[in-house]
Amino acid sequence: MDVIRCEVCGATQSLPSLEPRRRAFCYRCKSEVARGATLSLDAPLALCLAALIFWVLANSIPFITLQYGGITQTNRVFTGVSALWMDRQFFLSVLVGMTSIAIPGLQLTLACGLMLALKQGISGDKLRPLSRFLAFIAPGSMPGVYLVGAFVAAVKLSQLATLTPGPGLYCFGAFALFWVLGLGSLDLEAAIKDFRPRRSVR
């Protein structure tokens, strides 16, 4: 039995030990207070690494191609950021760049680093500042929203011109999927508190 405090309403309560994938809710305000973690970091690490690979691909290959009056225009994810910058829309440019590219990438890199460090046996207490920083930047990461935005833009533009989705778009979809699965299956609080690397037995 652990004693925990609900993040939402602040009620202190005891938490029974949870089996993997079971969730516990606050007795008072019914918000989720804990999730039974499968104390292995293998699955979240693999998913986050996959997301990171697709993040690199999605950002380096053509995203969407548009054909209009005999002219072809291809963009990448970053082109949207630089086009806004050229337009002197600096705030929009930074906002889009941070939420669609920079923060998700930073988040995944840090999460992978943190999991690898835990697996190496580095004590969770030393990694707390890093996990606090990860929680701080999390609301600024929006790959799923960006994907829906790309869908809406594609539908709108297909009325105007011929539009071909590039490989980068599919990679971005895979990246968003692995991002959700990887970070969703990682309970950083529990991992930092309870993860112990398996000792090799000889």
Binding site: I64, L66, Y68, G69, I71, Q73, N75, T79, G80, V81, S82, A83, L84, D87, L92, S93, L95, V96, T99, S100, M142, V145, Y146, V148, G149, A150, V152, A153, K156, L157, L160, A161
Partner: peptide, 17 residues
């Protein structure tokens, strides 16, 4: 944020002089 992303994608794609 959807509309903000739509703006960013659209202006980067529709540049046909």
């Amino acid at each position: 944020m959807i509309d903000v992303f739509v703006v960013s994608l659209t202006i980067s794609l529709v540049q046909f002089g």
